Simulated assay, not measured.
Amino acid sequence: MEVNMTAEEVMTAISQLQTRGENLAKKKVKQNHPDLMRHALHYFPDWNSAVDKSNLA
């Protein structure tokens, strides 16, 4: 897998999804934004950790 997003970009993208009111359930994000999910799992141990970190940023 080619990594072309930084951890900060992943957190920003997650925050933007949340701001738009999109469902952040792992299954929905994997379905609708597979690249974001792959990058999030590259930088974070699991999807919930990525979402938690994004909320703190």
Rank of each mutant, 00 (worst) to 15 (best):
D35A: 12
P34V: 05
W47V: 05
A50P: 03
H33F: 14
A50I: 07
M37K: 14
A57L: 11
A40G: 07
D35V: 12
L24N: 13
T19Q: 07
I14R: 00
Q16V: 03
N32A: 14
L56G: 02
V3Q: 13
W47P: 08
E9D: 06
N23C: 11
E9I: 02
E9H: 00
I14T: 02
T6H: 01
N55K: 13
Q16T: 07
W47R: 08
D52E: 12
N55W: 04
V51A: 03
D35R: 15
R38M: 04
I14Y: 00
L41D: 12
S15K: 10
K26V: 00
H42E: 14
R20D: 15
Q16G: 02
E8L: 11
P34M: 05
V29N: 07
Q31I: 01
D52M: 07
K27G: 05
E2F: 05
R38W: 01
M37L: 14
H33I: 02
D52S: 13
A40N: 07
L36K: 09
E9P: 03
M5T: 04
T12P: 00
Q18H: 13
P45F: 06
K27V: 13
R20H: 11
K28A: 06
L56V: 06
V10S: 06
K27E: 15
K27Q: 11
A7K: 15
L24C: 13
P45A: 05
A57F: 10
G21R: 13
T19L: 07
L56Y: 01
A50T: 11
N4L: 12
T19E: 14
A40T: 06
E8H: 10
N32D: 15
A13C: 03
K30V: 08
T6C: 02
Q16E: 13
A13Y: 12
A57I: 12
D35F: 14
L24D: 07
S15L: 06
S49W: 03
R38F: 02
R20A: 14
L24F: 10
E2K: 12
T12L: 09
L24K: 08
E22P: 00
Q31V: 02
K26I: 00
K30R: 14
S15T: 12
V51L: 01
V51M: 02
F44E: 09
P45I: 06
R20V: 01
M5Q: 09
T19C: 01
N4D: 15
N23Q: 06
